[in-house]
Simulated assay, not measured.
Amino acid sequence: MNAPLLVPVLVLLLAVGGLMGFRDAPNAVALAVRFRALTPRVALILSALLNAVGVLLGALMLTLGLPLMVAGGTARPEVLALVGVAAAVTLGWGVLAWRFRAPTSTTHALLASLAAAHVASVSALGSGLDPAFENGARWEVAASLLLSPVLAWGLARLTARPVLRLATTGTTVNVQHRARIALAVSTGLIALGHGVQAAVRLLPLAVLAATAAVGTGLPPGTELSAAFVAAAAVLAAAVGIGTLGGAWGIAWTLTERLVILDPLRAAVAAVVPAVLLFAGTMLLHLPLSSTHTGVAGIVGSGQTQSYASVRWGAVARVAVWWVATPLVCGSLAFAAGAVLLPLLG
């Protein structure tokens, strides 16, 4: 199950990177385009460029730990198939959710699939349980799934009214101008954070796949810098190209189906996930989903309006997709792993 599988697994990981760019583009551009802070073309080009830059920045961060990933240890041969199963399930679920215009987290789908496929390998092959896969992925999915929307919702609700009081001085034109500046800046920040998240999720999996293809791990001192830089550049291109697709159906869900916002509340709803995305990536090292925080920020900001603007039926449907993502992806990955791993082994 080693070398012949490496190329298709790496292609699947690149496809997941493109899917991340495609599906996450609305989180960055939807509100800015809706309130005319940026034109659709400019928003997508800016987001694609900053997504690519974010991937390269994330790769730079990972280079510090690259020797630890490849030195000395034994890479289990089933890891290559495990990564392939998780990537395939993530890709299929992401496409399905896009068809239904559902804003879901690709990162949560990937982590749940990895954990479940690993448990399947333990069951099918009798290998020992790796706590880094099972416990780490379970904690990250649970923490970010449950806590990040609550945190974003609370921050948006707390900050919306003070921001409105401070920002509504002056003429209507000046107020709208300030809101549009905040929306444009948040577009860039979210796109940059997306790229970093894509790199720190997918590049370590590519390294794991490569070491598993060798079969016995790489010897200490193995130089992978050139290959790693090339992989980062290709992933950056894939994420950037995927971003240009826009996924406007999901953008329509974010801007029209959940809450009707004014420009200033939209600015609050956009800035909150931008800040949390960087805090999660740089400080907490958790995959705080921009989709989850973005939707929660929109709802929290919308609740500060004097009339009932939140469409709770649409919010509930989105929440069902969020809960279904780790459950369905985990189940599919476990089933696929239980069937495929013994055949490949």
Rank of each mutant, 00 (worst) to 15 (best):
L62C: 11
I250C: 07
S47W: 06
A314M: 12
I181E: 08
A236I: 02
R157P: 05
A87R: 10
I190S: 09
T211C: 07
R311D: 09
A179V: 06
G65L: 08
M61Q: 11
A333P: 01
A97H: 01
A115I: 09
V175S: 08
Q303G: 05
E256G: 14
A279V: 15
V239D: 03
S301E: 01
P4K: 00
V173E: 13
A227M: 04
G193Y: 11
L218N: 02
V214L: 08
A335Q: 05
A117W: 02
A338E: 09
L147T: 07
T63D: 01
S113K: 06
L57A: 15
I181K: 07
Q197E: 13
A28D: 10
T172V: 14
G294S: 11
G21H: 03
V323M: 10
A116L: 05
A3F: 11
V315P: 11
R76C: 00
A251Y: 03
V175N: 09
A198Q: 01
R311C: 00
G170W: 05
V214C: 00
L189F: 13
S105W: 07
L60S: 08
S309N: 12
L125H: 03
L183Y: 05
V268P: 11
L68I: 06
L68K: 13
H285L: 12
G21N: 03
G188E: 04
G302P: 10
A226F: 01
V196P: 00
S148V: 13
V42W: 06
R165E: 14
L19C: 07
A15G: 15
L13Y: 01
L68D: 13
A142Y: 03
A210H: 12
G246V: 05
M69G: 07
R161I: 14
A324S: 14
L164T: 13
G128Y: 00
L110H: 03
V310N: 00
F278N: 10
V16H: 11
V271T: 14
V339L: 15
T168K: 08
L57G: 03
G330V: 13
I45W: 11
V214S: 12
L110A: 07
V55P: 05
T63I: 03
A32G: 12
G302Y: 03
T171R: 12
L91P: 08
L114E: 08
A132V: 04
L145M: 14
G195D: 08
R34W: 02
T107F: 03
A209L: 09
L44S: 12
A143S: 12
R41E: 11
S47K: 05
A227R: 10
G300D: 04
G302N: 08
G17M: 10
F228P: 04
V70L: 13
A167C: 11
L343D: 07
A233F: 04
R157A: 15
A32S: 15
G128W: 00
A120Y: 02
A206C: 02
V119S: 12
G302E: 02
T325D: 01
A116Y: 06
A231Y: 03
T74N: 04
G249H: 05
A112R: 02
T90I: 09
S113G: 11
A109Q: 14
A199G: 02
T172D: 12
L341G: 04
V207M: 01
V239T: 07
L145G: 06
L56R: 04
D262L: 00
G193N: 10
